[in-house]
């Protein structure tokens, strides 16, 4: 039982990183990504391959994964982020499909079977294989990510981002280079998703394409919308709720996606600020006529 709770806590931590990073894209760049699970997957595969083939230590493998996913984000964001919201959503959806196809078809990714025997992290001679230690590692990562996000959002750049989200044209007139900001934030968020992928791969030690499909992207999106777009605390709570709830409602597993889909529509109609959003935390702009 304790092991199971630790397992849930570790997964929740990984989801927190995913939700917070997607929320950077939604709440601060005003865009929707449906390929977040693809970045997560690329991170997981890149980190696993670096460890398996080149015997990279975990910190280097994770860093490499972040660089790779950040680069993918940059490549994907450059052509699309100058355009309307819808384009990024569709392009990232397509990206997810292609990445899935690549994982399935490439030899080096092991096709549908994926990769096995991914080593657990070792730091200073200490193995992080035991769950409590791994949980500590995840918590450390979550705090680093939250701290980084908090500083980013509070900084001058964060104010610029909010200006872009609320009034893109005005922001442009004020001399903010809006496409550049959006591209940077998108690729940062992709890098953070890569970190989450790396943490997942080295914890679970075997990965296959199934974990990184559209289903997972939607799950992350639900976490963000549930918690409130633009609210970091909201994303943390949304991630914990949706990581834990499905485990408690096992008998409804077949209905999971059905519920998530309905949840998205219903939330946006009745409570676009999210369940936990209120006042300052929420994005009033989303409901403004």
């Amino acid at each position: 039982m304790a092991a199971y709770l630790l397992h849930l806590a570790i997964l929740a931590g990984i989801y927190i990183i995913l939700a917070v990073s997607l929320n950077l894209i939604i709440g601060y760049a005003g865009q929707v990504s449906l390929g977040h699970a693809a970045f997560y997957g690329i991170g997981a595969y890149a980190s696993a391959l670096a460890a398996l083939h080149w015997h990279f230590p975990f910190p280097l493998a994770a860093l490499g994964a972040m660089l790779v996913t950040g680069g993918c984000g940059l490549a994907l964001g450059l052509p699309t982020l100058r355009l309307k919201e819808d384009y990024l959503a569709i392009v990232t959806l397509g990206f997810g499909v292609i990445v899935d196809l690549v994982f399935l078809n490439l030899e080096v990714t092991g096709g549908p079977d994926g990769l096995v025997g991914i080593p657990s992290p070792r730091l200073l001679g200490l193995s992080f294989r035991p769950q409590p230690l791994y949980l500590l590692l995840v918590i450390l990562a979550v705090f680093l990510v939250l701290g980084f996000t908090y500083l980013l959002v509070r900084s001058y750049h964060g104010r610029a981002l909010r200006a872009i989200r609320d009034h893109e044209t005005t922001a442009q007139v004020m001399g903010i280079n809006t496409p550049a900001y959006k591209i940077v934030i998108f690729s940062l968020a992709a890098a953070l998703a890569g970190l989450a992928g790396s943490l997942y791969a080295h914890y679970i030690t075997f990965i296959n394409p199934e974990s990184f499909g559209l289903h997972t992207s939607i799950l992350i999106l639900c976490m963000v919308v549930l918690g409130g777009m633009g609210s970091i605390i909201g994303s943390v709570l949304g991630a914990i709720a949706l990581a834990v709830l499905p485990e408690m409602l096992r008998q409804f597993q077949a209905y999971q996606d059905l519920i998530y889909g309905a949840l998205l529509v219903a939330l946006l109609i009745w409570r676009p600020e999210g369940l936990l959003g209120r006042g300052k935390l929420s994005l009033k702009f989303l409901t403004r006529g």
Binding site: G30, V32, E85, V265, P272, T287
Partner: peptide, 9 residues
């Protein structure tokens, strides 16, 4: 509403 809202819906 903001265009993100109907898109996500």
């Amino acid at each position: 509403a903001h265009p993100l809202v109907p898109l996500i819906s």
